[in-house]
Amino acid sequence: MSALLEVRRLAKQFGGLSAVEDVSFAVETGEIVGLIGPNGAGKTTLFEMASGFQRPTRGEIWFDGTRIDRLSTPAICARGLARTFQIVRPFGDMTVLDNVIVGAFMRAPSPKMARAHAATILAQVHLAGRCDQVARTLTLADRKRLEMAKALATGPKLVLLDEVMAGLTRVETDEIMEIVRALPRAGVTILMVEHNMHAVMGLSDRVIVIHHGRKIGEGSPAQIAENPAVVAAYLGGRDDADA
C-alpha cells in the first residue's frame, strides 16, 4: 500500500541556515500523525513546503500518487491537501459562514451548493451557531475552529493542522480533540504540528519527532515517550518542555 503523503530526503536552507535536513517520513490514509519538536525545529517549514508556500532545496514530496513539491499552493489544495495556519487567518470582514463558503467553492459547482456544504462543515466543528457572526469578532477558540472549518471545506484527503490547540484552555482543547478524532472516519487523514502533549499523545496513532531540522524519532506515543534521544532533546530537555 502506497502512502497518502510521502516526504523523501527533504531539505530546506535559508541562506546558510539549514531549517530542514534530510527528513523522510510517510503518512498512511486514515492515520492521525503528530509532528513534534522544540521551537525552531523545522516543523512549520515542513508544512510550508508540503502546502506549496516554500520550495524545498532538495528532496521530494509525494501526495496521493503525484509529486507536489513543484506545484503551486492552489494546485496542491485542488489535489486534496489543505492546511491551517499557526497564527489563525480568518477573513475578518466576512461572516463565519462566508469564510467557509470560500473554501467550499473549491469543489462546489454553484453558490447554493457551496453554502450547503459550508453549513455542514460548520456543524462538524460545532460552530453552526455562529454562522452570521463577523469573523473578526470571534474568540480564539472559535477562530481555531473556523481555521479548521475553512481547510475542511475544500474537501481534502489530508489536512495539515498547525497548532490548532495552542493557547486554548483544557476544556477547549478537549472539544477540538473530539473534532479531530472524528475526522479519519469522515475520510480525512491528519498530520498535525502540536506543542500540547496531552493532545498529541491522546490523538496520534504515530508521532514523528524533529530536532534541529532532523528526524530523531518515530513511533507510537508510548514508544516516543520512552525514546532516550527524544526525551533528551525535547520532553525532558531542561526547561524546554511544554504542557
Binding site: 508556500f53 499552493t73 495556519f85 487567518r89 480568518p90 466576512m94 470560500v102 475553512k150 475544500t154
Partner: peptide, 17 residues
C-alpha cells in the same frame, strides 16, 4: 467570494486553492 477573500488575506486565500 474569492475577491473578498483576497482582499482580506492573500496567503489564506491561496491556501484555500
Amino acid at each position: 467570494f474569492h475577491l473578498v477573500a483576497i482582499r482580506n488575506d492573500q496567503d489564506a486565500a491561496l491556501a484555500l486553492g
